[in-house]
């Protein structure tokens, strides 16, 4: 974690990911252009650009939306999750090229303002079949602009994580609008079964992934655990936690991370103050619990970020009966010092 803001947060891994993203985008555009010129030679360059960038953005959006649930179902995909931001901004840029070229191609010929023309060239707003699909794409692009424009740690901090998260959850609205935009567009412009077919496969895949991952989480959240006579909850045996790692345990639908380090055990709330990252999936680095998402750190004994940082998370009390770990379900206020249990 750094104190100052940088233009783009790059490290060795992120640079590799970004090169892969760029290579994928260029490859896709080249293959798309090649196929178009082979099979549909009369296509104009403007139409080619509109279609190539439009389909590229849709594919990238599907990948972005798949990363979240896939990395919850299988933790080996987590590195993709940590590098999702640049993929999102690249997707917005591809969508913007598609939008701007469509606007030039279809709406700059008349003497009305092109944005006004998008909304008024087809006024069939009451029809389901002939609904002006370009309006849906326009609104989705505005949402994606809001998200891409605020994809920086400065905004995460200064808009506050909760406002930022709400803004970025608008991606689901954008997704719904884009699916309808492509569906109705394909429908009104060309009745190709491929477009509708690919779109349906993508839709079913994304929705299933999210629902499977979502219901899995509900199961974890509602798991009941064994209590002792003083209502403390049984977590696990000390041997089940690796050194410098944590066990994530659910207490009253909230998750607690129980860390084992230097022969001691400490429990803190699992949610990082920065962006809600899962602290229990992180490691202890230099004596601090380190969030796997952006490297925010907390001291295991009191849940406080080491100075000069001011983040604090709730702490929990633990006790050991032989090698069985028990946790007091009542959380202490954020940043409360709790003596670690020796094991």
């Amino acid at each position: 974690m750094g104190l100052d803001y940088q233009t783009i947060l790059w490290n060795k891994h992120k640079k590799v990911y970004d090169k892969l993203i760029l290579a994928f985008m260029l490859m896709y555009l080249l293959v798309f252009a090649g196929l178009t010129f082979t099979f549909n030679a009369q296509t104009t360059i403007e139409t080619l650009i509109i279609r190539a960038f439009g389909t590229l953005a849709v594919i990238m959006l599907h990948i972005i939306l798949a990363i979240g649930p896939i990395s919850r179902l299988n933790t080996s995909f987590l590195p993709l999750l940590y590098n999702r931001r640049h993929l999102g901004v690249s997707m917005f840029l591809a969508a913007a090229v598609h939008g701007v070229f469509s606007m030039i191609q279809f709406h700059t010929l008349g003497n009305v303002n092109p944005v006004y023309s998008i909304f008024t060239s087809n006024l069939d707003y009451t029809s389901l079949t002939n609904f002006p699909f370009q309006v849906l794409g326009f609104v989705a692009l505005i949402i994606l602009f809001f998200m891409a424009a605020t994809s920086h740690d400065f905004w995460l901090k200064n808009l506050s994580p909760s406002v930022w998260k709400k803004l970025h959850m608008m991606v689901y609205v954008a997704y719904a609008l884009i699916i309808l935009h492509v569906f109705l567009g394909a429908f009104q412009q060309e009745t190709s079964p491929f477009t509708i077919g690919f779109l349906s496969i993508g839709f079913v895949t994304i929705v299933s992934l999210h629902l499977i991952a979502g219901f899995n989480e509900v199961k974890t959240d509602t798991k009941k655990s064994e209590k002792d006579e003083s209502n403390w909850l049984y977590v696990c045996r000390t041997g089940e936690i690796e050194e410098d790692r944590a066990k994530i345990f659910t207490v009253d639908k909230e998750r607690v991370a129980i860390f084992k380090y230097e022969g001691k055990l400490s429990a803190i709330h699992n949610v990082c103050k920065h962006q809600g990252g899962p602290l229990g999936e992180g490691k202890i680095v230099d004596g601090c619990i380190t969030c796997p998402w952006h490297g925010y750190q907390y001291l295991p004994g009191n849940g406080q970020s080491p100075p000069p940082f001011t983040e604090k998370v709730a702490t929990y009390e633990l006790k050991l009966v032989k090698d069985k770990i028990y946790l007091n379900p009542e959380a202490f206020p954020e940043g409360t010092e709790v003596k670690p249990v020796n094991c």
Binding site: Y5, Q6, T7, I8, F145, F146, A148, A149, T150, H152, F154, W155, L159, L167
Partner: peptide
């Protein structure tokens, strides 16, 4: 650097 502020301008326009 000033480039950071420049990069943040679209976010300021939006929010």
């Amino acid at each position: 650097k000033w480039t950071v502020r420049l990069l943040l301008v679209p976010g300021a326009v939006a929010t």
